[in-house]
């Protein structure tokens, strides 16, 4: 038996690509959750609302310091006991989204902190309403600055999707495992799975780096 069987590799490629679509779907939906929720966290933290501030801090620290896999198990096994049963796909999106929201919130925070104090003072001098200060002045400056960092987290999320095979989500690696178990040949499925990740995430991170350099130069 050869170490690498091209025929087999081409046979399984369509199935793996199909599973890759699921991986991308989860990445995109999870990113939407992470990018929006992270922004909410960052702004709420900045408002320093008593109690809520401490609760959010603790939540962010716990989520950042514990494994995503355990959090996914938590959503998958604990929520049904409270009458909330989510599909594995949804648990994946929500778990990934919340986990990465705690990271993106730090990114937004850094972006907001980088806005010079003079901008806030000019807003006060113009008596701008608080909502407008955020939507008109602070966020339009802070968010573009942190886009590259956010992009990096989206790529990280993409690479973490395979973890969801632990709750039965059929993404690329799970598909590779199932294909392999039919023939007891794992070399091709896992290698192709790895290459698919590299093929997507490497160009994506190059893109982010270019964006970063453009921002730095501007």
């Amino acid at each position: 038996m050869p170490l690498w069987d091209w025929n087999y590799a081409f046979d399984i490629l369509p199935d793996l690509l199909l599973a890759l679509v699921t991986t991308i779907e989860i990445t995109v939906l999870g990113s939407v959750v992470a990018l929006l929720l992270g922004l909410v966290f960052a702004v709420l933290r900045r408002l320093h609302i008593p109690v809520l501030d401490q609760v959010l801090w603790a939540f962010v620290e716990v989520v950042r310091s514990t494994p995503l896999l355990v959090q996914v198990f938590f959503l998958f096994f604990v929520l049904p006991q409270f009458g909330i049963t989510l599909s594995a796909f949804v648990v994946g999106v929500v778990g990934l989204g919340i986990h990465y929201a705690t990271y993106t919130s730090e990114v937004y925070r850094a972006g907001i902190d980088a806005i010079p104090k003079g901008q806030w003072e000019a807003c006060t001098a113009l008596s701008l309403p608080r909502l407008r200060v955020w939507t008109g002045v602070i966020l339009p400056q802070a968010v573009p600055r942190v886009l590259p960092a956010l992009g990096n987290y989206v790529i990280s999320m993409f690479k973490e999707v395979p973890l969801l095979l632990a709750i039965g989500v059929v993404e690329v690696v799970n598909e590779a495992r199932e294909l392999g178990s039919l023939t007891f040949r794992y070399t091709e499925p896992y290698t192709i799975a790895g290459l698919l990740f590299l093929l997507l995430s490497y160009p994506a991170s190059m893109l982010v780096r270019r964006l970063e350099r453009r921002r730095a130069a501007a």
């Binding site: 690479k159 973490e160 395979p162 790895g194 990740f197 590299l198 995430s201 490497y202 991170s205």
Partner: peptide, 8 residues
């Protein structure tokens, strides 16, 4: 850095 840790 470009591939998934689970795949590795």
């Amino acid at each position: 850095r470009g591939t998934s840790e689970v795949v590795q």
